[in-house]
Amino acid sequence: MFSKPTINRLLVASVLVATLALNGCANLGVKPWQRDLLAKDEMALDAEGIDLGLDDHIYFSKEATSGGRSFAGGGCGCN
């Protein structure tokens, strides 16, 4: 499907992106003793899980798109 030079270029590009990403991620973040704010319950990405679950059910049954944040399965016959 792809020619060999194309694959090589893609490989080089992938390695560059991966290296940049990993190096970059290593520069981000905090030390364990700097997690005072991040450790708060309300800073969890899924804080208010009950509300999010209820909203997912509503929007799953009223709109054509679901999921993204977590698995899309709605498990109801509403759509």
Partner: peptide, 26 residues
């Protein structure tokens, strides 16, 4: 039958901020 795949990365940006990116295929 429904099969979902979910790939994600979460990154702490600094003391005040964190970020998540998900890709899903269903």
């Amino acid at each position: 039958n429904t099969v979902d795949l979910l790939l994600g990365v979460t990154q702490v940006i600094n003391r005040r901020m964190l970020m998540q990116f998900n890709y899903s295929y269903s």
